[in-house]
């Protein structure tokens, strides 16, 4: 006697195959949705912004007249800010990751640090701005300077770099450590000559992605009081400054329609820089990634 009812199976088959197809469509639409929205956004920005995009736009300071307005000061400010943020956050982040992965013993203190890093990653960026304002601008009397902004941004992206570096270090197989230690290498020699070279692609990728987040952040810098209208270039790290997203924010906040178009042009530049940084990250990952 057959336990399997052939007729029932035949009847159900259609339904099974139908839901199989439907599911595929649902998941496909889900992924298309994001892309479509992005495409609409890009279309709008390029349509509005492209007419203003020329060399003058890159080489002029902000202006009261939309057709004369440029982002020279903002680009320079962003570059300065990155010049402070990148080394500070990478040194602190990689140092923390090395300590946690290589030296730290499992105890209260280590757990405390780990917990705080994940907490730090969840803190809204405005709070970092407040922190920067309190500690760097006021307490340490750095003023509304590039260095205060750079430090604040470093703190903001520190957790991202720590986590990326930790993962890069953890991906190194044990056999690599064994090979080095078995030859009488010290811990530091092993870290410098085996761990860091192997983890470098991961660290750089994580670092660049973190920096590309920092370059688009506005809130913390508004909090510490970065200026929005500057007609001079920063001279050193103690100068006042503005950055791309603040400049864009400032333009969109103006009543004149033309400035909204100028803002779109600024967004094009910002997107271009972000795309460039992400491509570099992808390139590094491809070029240096090592298989064991």
């Amino acid at each position: 006697m057959n336990l399997v009812d052939k007729q029932l199976v035949q009847r159900r088959r259609k339904k099974r195959l139908f839901s199989n197809r439907i599911m595929r469509q649902i998941f496909f639409s889900a992924s298309v949705f994001g892309i479509v929205v992005l495409a609409v956004l890009l279309y709008r920005i390029f349509r509005e912004g492209l007419p203003y995009l020329d060399i003058d736009f890159l080489t002029s300071f902000a202006s009261r007249f939309p057709e004369e307005a440029g982002i020279k000061a903002a680009i320079t400010g962003s570059v300065w800010l990155m010049a402070v943020t990148a080394p500070v956050s990478v040194v602190l982040g990689v140092g923390t990751a090395i300590y946690l992965e290589e030296y730290a013993k499992e105890n209260m203190f280590t757990r405390f640090i780990r917990m705080n890093i994940s907490n730090l990653a969840g803190v809204p960026s405005v709070v970092f701005g407040l922190l920067g304002l309190t500690v760097f601008v006021r307490l340490m009397e750095m003023g509304r300077s590039i260095i205060a902004g750079g430090f604040t941004m470093s703190l903001l992206i520190l957790p991202i770099i720590v986590v990326a570096s930790q993962e890069a270090i953890r991906a190194i197989p044990n056999s690599q450590y064994e090979a080095s230690y078995a030859m009488g290498a010290t811990k530091w020699q092993t870290i410098r000559r085996v761990v860091l070279p192997a983890a470098l692609p991961g660290i750089l990728t994580g670092g660049i992605l973190a920096l590309s987040r920092a370059i688009g952040e506005t809130a913390p810098l508004l909090m510490i009081g970065a200026l929005s209208f500057i007609a001079y270039l920063p001279e050193n790290i103690w100068s006042g400054f503005t950055v791309l997203p603040i400049q864009i924010f400032n333009w969109t906040a103006r009543p004149q329609e033309e400035f909204h178009l100028v803002a779109s042009t600024g967004i094009i530049i910002l997107l271009f820089i972000l795309l460039l940084m992400n491509s570099v990250a992808v390139l590094i990952r491809h070029k240096f990634s090592k298989r064991y």
Partner: peptide, 24 residues
Amino acid sequence: GMVFQHPNPFPKSIYENVVYGPRT
């Protein structure tokens, strides 16, 4: 010195692998 069950060269050149110990 020690030789392991699975070959575990470093992701470096052949030469760099051999001189790793003396360098260290």
